[in-house]
Deep mutational scan, measured.
Amino acid sequence: MQRVNMIMAESPGLITICLLGYLLSAECTVFLDHENANKILNRPKRYNSGKLEEFVQGNLERECMEEKCSFEEAREVFENTERTTEFWKQYVDGDQCESNPCLNGGSCKDDINSYECWCPFGFEGKNCELDVTCNIKNGRCEQFCKNSADNKVVCSCTEGYRLAENQKSCEPAVPFPCGRVSVSQTSKLTRAETVFPDVDYVNSTEAETILDNITQSTQSFNDFTRVVGGEDAKPGQFPWQVVLNGKVDAFCGGSIVNEKWIVTAAHCVETGVKITVVAGEHNIEETEHTEQKRNVIRIIPHHNYNAAINKYNHDIALLELDEPLVLNSYVTPICIADKEYTNIFLKFGSGYVSGWGRVFHKGRSALVLQYLRVPLVDRATCLRSTKFTIYNNMFCAGFHEGGRDSCQGDSGGPHVTEVEGTSFLTGIISWGEECAMKGKYGIYTKVSRYVNWIKEKTKLT
């Protein structure tokens, strides 16, 4: 034993070699072989497995989906700052455009905790909710729209109204504003409101030439003092309507412009014939205590009207009353817009006519005020429907199939267009061939041609 100890002390290297040989010859039971080890760690190889990531292109799944990435790591994937920024906006807080917040056709661009709407022409605001041009839906104005110097929408209202708090709607500024039905039992019968379409306001006024200088022999019209197929109006439903009495009662109609003036057809009036105007009328054979009678003290036909040349060209006249009318729910003026808007309103496509005229061709006159909704007829169809001249200051309205029309005794009465609950004068009943005849239409004086003249002559002093 002493000898062994001496050998170990003198030859430590020998001992180490012996131990190493023993270990190498022993069977290893701690580690699995290569094949079995792979069965336990069965993990798919990654895209760049075996390579240094710093030297390969980034992978979106590896960089940002398996674990949260930084902007720089995302930049490695896209290799483009702009594309990385677009991805980053949604990656950080989701897609803010998912709810489609942009209105009126706006395009949404996502941002971090926010979004941006790219608005089409005519709109602005956070969600493109603000109209900035009158060309689109009248700028959301209830009545009139004008573009300011910086191309912003400025709404306005006709006389007797003021802008509401929203700067879009119009509200009454006087007790009985024009064009409004205020009798409670008839307010439910107000005709369907007309909503502004998209309009090209630059070209809204037709490029028409008034044929002022045409000389033409007097034409022989049949029954051209021209509501057939209409309905009984309720008291106060058309408070701007008046009836004219002269040699015979209810020979023509008219509309209240203001307390002192009536507008009617020029062919209705004769110099030297006494005319009485009755406002607030409903049943011409009954006294309903809503009527107001006034005498006409002055007749002003349009300066281009000449019955000797043509009885229905420039067929418009103004009547001055001896005493002002007292405005109330049964006696209310009709609204008159400017030339541009009167023309736009007419193009809405349908209007209402009213009167006490004959209820059928050569038949009896109506006792109760009649009204009828009539569609506008395109000019080409209008011209083809008659052998008589249709001037540019006239328009056609009615039904091709016949059966409904204005008729004798309705002449001078109103053709009105309702705009968001307020009625505007767009025409004056003038003439036609018979009444409600198939293929024939009622012919009306186009008020847009005469609004400046009306307003100039009827100013209240």
Rank of each mutant, 00 (worst) to 15 (best):
S25L: 13
R449K: 06
N80C: 04
G280H: 02
G229C: 11
K152L: 10
E320N: 02
K457C: 09
T225K: 14
T215H: 05
T133M: 13
E193W: 10
P324H: 04
I15V: 07
I454V: 06
S385F: 15
A265V: 03
D338E: 07
N283H: 11
A307S: 09
V77E: 15
N304E: 11
V278F: 04
G402C: 06
G122E: 03
F251G: 05
I275E: 02
W88G: 15
F196R: 08
T417F: 02
A26V: 12
V30K: 13
V77G: 15
K387V: 05
P414M: 14
P414D: 03
W240M: 01
V202E: 10
G21D: 03
A366Q: 13
V92Q: 15
G230L: 12
T158R: 01
A164H: 11
K274E: 13
C335G: 01
S25Q: 09
L369A: 14
G355M: 04
L32C: 05
N328H: 02
E79I: 15
Y305N: 03
G13T: 12
N393L: 02
F31N: 15
T426G: 00
F196P: 09
R404F: 13
C128V: 01
I300G: 01
K188F: 11
N48S: 14
V153D: 04
T389N: 15
T342L: 04
E67G: 09
C102Y: 00
E124W: 03
G351K: 02
M394A: 08
K293E: 10
L20P: 02
Q143F: 03
Y115P: 01
G50D: 15
D405S: 15
I136T: 05
A233Y: 07
G179C: 01
S11P: 09
L130H: 13
Y341Q: 15
D95W: 05
D249A: 09
K39S: 12
V174C: 05
S255Y: 02
V248Y: 12
H415D: 01
G58S: 13
L244R: 01
N48D: 15
N393K: 03
A37E: 11
D95V: 05
E433G: 11
K45G: 11
V153C: 04
Q185H: 13
V92R: 11
S169N: 13
M6W: 14
L460E: 10
E418I: 11
V447W: 01
L41K: 09
V447I: 11
N245L: 07
L103K: 09
D232L: 06
V174I: 08
P301Q: 11
I299F: 07
Q167H: 13
V199K: 13
G402I: 13
A9Q: 13
Q167I: 05
D405C: 09
G413T: 07
E66S: 08
S148A: 08
K274M: 07
N5P: 10
V277F: 01
F55H: 15
P175M: 12
V30L: 14
D110V: 05
C145D: 00
Q185W: 11
K234Q: 07
S217W: 09
M394K: 03
I17C: 06
F121N: 03
V154E: 07
T290L: 06
C141T: 00
G409E: 06
Q241G: 06
R162S: 10
K455S: 05
T16M: 15
F121L: 08
I428Y: 05
Q167V: 05
G94S: 11
L19P: 02
K188M: 12
Q57Y: 09
